[in-house]
Design a protein around this nucleic acid. Structure first.
Length: 261
DNA sequence: ATGGTCGTTAGACGA
């Protein structure tokens, strides 16, 4: 059995103490981070190594984006894709010794206006998802887990107000359709929703709310998916809402699942 | 309906 977590950390260097606290308290076997905002060589690895996370694959750039997989388990092979040819560090993959491949993805946020004619970033987000779709259609992934900040809340109960968010980037129908197309192409199953089938689930709350907890205007942007051949091994999904209340938090919280593999 | 807050890094840009 192994436990896996995904967390948009919004600067791994600034939040090194929070990552260390999370690794100490929850001790997942694997932690996938997004928005590390750091070149790979500047990720603070010593503290993570000291906590048992001696294996790392990461992609980074200065100031923006960045993804990393910290692991207690050995990593046999690694790779990355540049979906939509943006030149951004938004994907890294690792294969474990048990043959499981983990994809860690940071989908572009997409800007404010949900129209590719008026907003280049929205078009890039859709193109990124389309290229993910095409890659998974070609790859036919097996024994694979995909996690990350997908920057889309697909279900009505993944947002605080479905109707109010239909024209807000992250919950527009065209984004939900593009995400579903990428998901279907790899036959990915939403592990979190396979485990927790009903009720509102959020993994992100804006920094801009006066009182994020009281307002509770959240969205489920962070996801764990698995291919059908291993999805039944997944269990004990959790979203760690209290982490949003830690000192100097990320606006995202960790999402976890365990796999009997 | 609008503006609200962060992080990086040094004036915006991105989320």
């Amino acid at each position: 059995m192994f436990t896996l977590a995904t967390w948009n950390i919004n600067s791994v260097r600034l939040r090194e103490p929070l990552v260390a606290r999370f690794l100490t308290e929850e001790a997942p076997d694997i932690l996938c981070l997004q928005e590390t905002k750091s070149p790979v060589e500047k990720i603070p690895l010593e503290i993570f190594r000291s906590l048992g996370y001696t294996h790392l694959v990461a992609r980074g750039q200065k100031g923006y984006n960045g993804v990393a997989i910290l692991s207690k388990l050995p990593i046999e092979d690694a790779g990355d894709r540049d979906y939509a040819s943006l030149g951004h560090a938004r994907h890294v993959a690792a294969r474990l010794e048990n043959g499981i491949t983990i994809h860690n993805v940071y989908v572009p946020a997409g800007g404010d206006i949900p129209d590719r004619e008026q907003n280049v970033k929205f078009g890039q987000k859709l193109d990124f998802l389309t290229e993910m779709r095409d890659a998974f259609h070609a790859d036919n992934p097996k024994k694979s887990i995909l996690v990350g900040d997908l920057n889309i809340a697909p279900r009505e109960d993944d947002v605080w107000n479905h109707k109010a968010l239909l024209k807000i980037v992250s919950h527009t129908p065209i984004e939900v359709e593009h995400l579903a197309a990428a998901q279907d192409a790899g036959k990915w199953v939403d592990v979190t929703r396979n485990d927790i089938r009903e009720g509102r689930l959020y993994s992100w709350w804006s920094y801009r709310a006066k009182d994020w907890d009281a307002a509770d205007k959240g969205r489920r942007l962070d996801h764990i998916w698995a291919t059908p051949d291993i999805v039944n091994a997944g269990h004990d999904s959790r979203i760690l809402r209290p982490v949003r209340g830690w000192e100097q938090p990320s606006d995202h919280v960790p999402v976890l699942a365990s796999f009997d593999l």
